[in-house]
Amino acid sequence: MIWSARMFNDPPNASELLLTVREYIEQLLPDLERQDKYHGLCCTYLLDVVMRELEEPPNIGDHSNNALKALLNNKDELSETEFMSSLCASIRRGDQDGNLDRLLILLTSHVSKKVRVSNPDYLDTKDYL
């Protein structure tokens, strides 16, 4: 199921289009010189990232995000970026110094959410689930 793609377009859908481009680049790779091959491999990696991002349910990781928001004790509605900036400022000021063990667990969960998209194979099993 693709969560963020609009569903009224004709097939192929977004993931299938990306896969098509990826397959074509893969075919080219054996004939490319070292530098172009490296950038070609980077392109296949980037396409994999986009495909995973399209397929990632948007509510993954909400639990840790909500727990992080609770740390700030901020009732205001903040955008994701505003919230992250507030959290960074709070850590920088030392407001979370009494809470570092809990913060480490929550941040690992927050970062794992990003790694699920960028390189899920890299995650420890307990951070993947």
Partner: peptide, 26 residues
Amino acid sequence: RSPAFAACGRNTGIIEYDLLKIIAKE
């Protein structure tokens, strides 16, 4: 501009993961 530098942006989270797991001694 390059695909490798674009990949660096998404690589950041993987390095952060290392960072936190090392601090946690995992």
